Computed example of a mutant assay.
Amino acid sequence: MSTHPPFRKVFAGVATRSQMFALFNRHRDTPGVNPLSGKAYASEWFEIEASSYHFMLGLLPPLFQRTGMFGMSEYKAGNVTSVFFAVRIRGRERWFHGFCDLSDKRSPDAMRAAIVAYETGAVDSMTREEKLEAIWSATDADFRGIASETNPDAWPPEHHGKRTILTFVAGKGTTLKLLEDLTDEEIDSRMPAVHARSRRGGGNDAEPS
């Protein structure tokens, strides 16, 4: 029986079409990741606009399609492909994209269940790691980088290859900082306000669109 890593939300808020396409390739400059491997993307998901959902549905004949879900016939790599979801959550229709490893045929349904659980409050909030991934995805390429990529002497050898982000540090001004070293306050200040909305409410009341 095949297994998959935990499903991970990688963008806070609703991605525009241009943001969606950027997220499709968000591991292109991630250190230690083969950009041609779909494994780095497997189980990642984020919310998209309705127009993006319908645009992608009309782009290519779907690999599969059923109520509230379709898969792209063009694979990312290996067995990993894009799956798009239309879900009604607490009376409001919403749309999502996720990368599913179809070597596990249950992956699309498991991802949909994970999205519903997260968005209805069965999972209270993003983990620190998910927040860091969301911040990295939302930060312009001009304001993020890889330690030692252009100046090896600027970072200790143990930090070479780690992700960096431009941030303001009291007493130092604007400087590069390791993404993993962001404080909780810095993380919260960089998360879109939409993420702060309350998730309190009723139970799992989502249904297919």
Results as ranks from 00 to 15, higher is better:
Ile165Gly: 02
Ser43Val: 00
Glu44Leu: 10
Thr183Cys: 06
Arg199Pro: 02
Ser125Gln: 13
Thr127Lys: 11
Leu182Phe: 03
Thr167Asp: 14
Thr175Ala: 15
Arg190Pro: 05
Gly71Arg: 05
Ala147Met: 04
Thr139Lys: 04
Glu47Leu: 02
Thr67Leu: 13
Glu180Pro: 01
Glu47Gly: 01
Thr81Asn: 14
Arg90Thr: 06
Glu158Val: 06
Ser43Tyr: 03
Leu23Ile: 10
Ala196Asn: 10
Tyr41Ile: 00
Glu93Val: 09
Ser37Thr: 01
Asp29Leu: 09
Pro31His: 03
Glu158Ala: 09
Leu59Gly: 00
Ala206Val: 03
Leu176Lys: 07
Met1Asp: 12
Thr183Asn: 09
Leu36Thr: 04
Phe24Leu: 12
Ser52Met: 08
Ala117Arg: 14
Phe70Tyr: 15
Gly13Gln: 04
Val116Leu: 13
Phe84Gly: 00
Ala113Leu: 12
Ala170Asp: 15
Asp188Tyr: 01
Ser198Trp: 08
Ala147Asn: 08
Val33Ser: 08
Arg94Asn: 05
Gly71Trp: 02
Asn79Met: 08
His54Gln: 11
Ser107Asp: 14
Ser125Ile: 00
Arg112Asn: 06
Ile48Tyr: 12
Val194His: 08
Glu74Phe: 08
Gln19Asp: 13
His54Ser: 09
Val169Asp: 14
Pro6Thr: 04
Leu179Cys: 05
Pro108Trp: 07
Thr127Tyr: 11
Ala42Trp: 01
Glu185Met: 03
Ile135Lys: 04
Gly38Trp: 01
Trp95Leu: 01
Ser73Leu: 05
Ala114Gly: 08
Glu185Lys: 12
Val194Asn: 07
Met20Asn: 14
Phe168Ile: 05
Thr16Lys: 11
Thr167Tyr: 08
Ala110Arg: 13
Thr139Ser: 06
Ser148Met: 05
Phe46Lys: 05
Ser198Met: 06
Leu36Val: 00
Asp181Gln: 13
Gln19Tyr: 05
Asn79Trp: 10
Gly68Pro: 04
Asp124Ser: 13
Ser43Asp: 07
Phe96Met: 07
Glu130Arg: 03
Phe96Pro: 09
Ala193Cys: 00
Ser51Glu: 15
Val194Pro: 03
Ser198His: 07
Arg200Gln: 12
Gln65Pro: 01
Met56Pro: 04
Asp188Ala: 15
Ala22Glu: 15
Gly91Val: 02
Thr150Gln: 14
Pro156Ile: 02
Phe64Leu: 09
Trp136Phe: 15
His27Leu: 11
Ser103Glu: 15
Ala170Arg: 14
Pro156Arg: 10
Leu132Trp: 10
Thr30Gly: 00
Phe96Ile: 03
Gly98Cys: 04
Thr30Phe: 15
Thr3Cys: 07
Gly203Val: 06
Ser198Phe: 08
Pro62Leu: 00
His160Glu: 09
Arg17Ala: 09
Gly32Ala: 06
Glu74Gly: 00
Ala114Lys: 11
Trp136His: 12
Cys100Val: 15
Asp142Ala: 13
Gly38Tyr: 04
Tyr118Asp: 11
Asp181Ile: 00
Val83Arg: 11
Trp95Glu: 02
Glu185Trp: 02
Ser37Ala: 13
Pro157Ser: 10
Leu23Pro: 06
Lys39Glu: 15
Leu176Glu: 14
Val10Cys: 11
Phe64Asp: 10
Ser2Glu: 12
Pro152Ile: 02
Asp104Pro: 07
Glu158Thr: 03
Asp109Cys: 00
Leu166Ser: 11
Val33Ile: 15
Ala40Val: 05
Phe143Gly: 04
Ser189Phe: 07
Trp155Pro: 08
Val116Asn: 13
Asp101Ile: 01
Tyr53Asp: 01
Leu36Glu: 14
Ala113Arg: 14
